[in-house]
């Protein structure tokens, strides 16, 4: 597992049934592009988050493929429907096989 990887998401705590909510997500990750060289001139191998998925109660909101052109500490903002109370699941997939996830519940107000 790459060191110091920490996800962060911002989801409203409540919404009205049927609302569309804005969600922001960020994960601390170097996103080593595979284009850089170290001091000895050797290419530093690529090591990135290559996929980011978001589901609400098991149904897909967003499935994003990331390439090395995504900046360090990948940030993604998008919108989701909230037809009912439930839980968002955010999952990041690392080149090294690690999977990071976090969940956020949302209530109907």
């Amino acid at each position: 597992m790459a060191s110091g990887v920490k996800p962060r998401v911002k989801v409203p705590k409540t919404a009205a049934a049927g609302d569309v909510v804005t969600i922001k997500s960020l994960i601390s990750h170097k996103m080593e592009s595979g284009q850089r060289k170290d001091k000895e001139g050797n290419t530093i191998p690529r090591s990135i988050i290559n996929r980011f998925t978001v589901e609400f109660n098991g149904e897909s909101v967003l499935d994003m493929t990331m390439e090395p052109a995504i900046s360090t500490n990948p940030y993604v903002q998008f919108e989701a429907k909230v037809p009912e109370a439930g839980e968002f699941t955010f999952t990041w997939y690392d080149d090294d096989g690690s999977v990071y996830d976090t969940k956020k519940a949302i209530a109907i107000a």
């Binding site: 920490k6 962060r8 911002k10 922001k24 960020l26 601390s28 500490n73 940030y75």
Partner: peptide
């Protein structure tokens, strides 16, 4: 504070 990428390190 969510758009500010420094804040994830503040969390850490």
């Amino acid at each position: 504070d969510f758009d500010n990428p420094a804040m994830v390190f503040v969390d850490q």
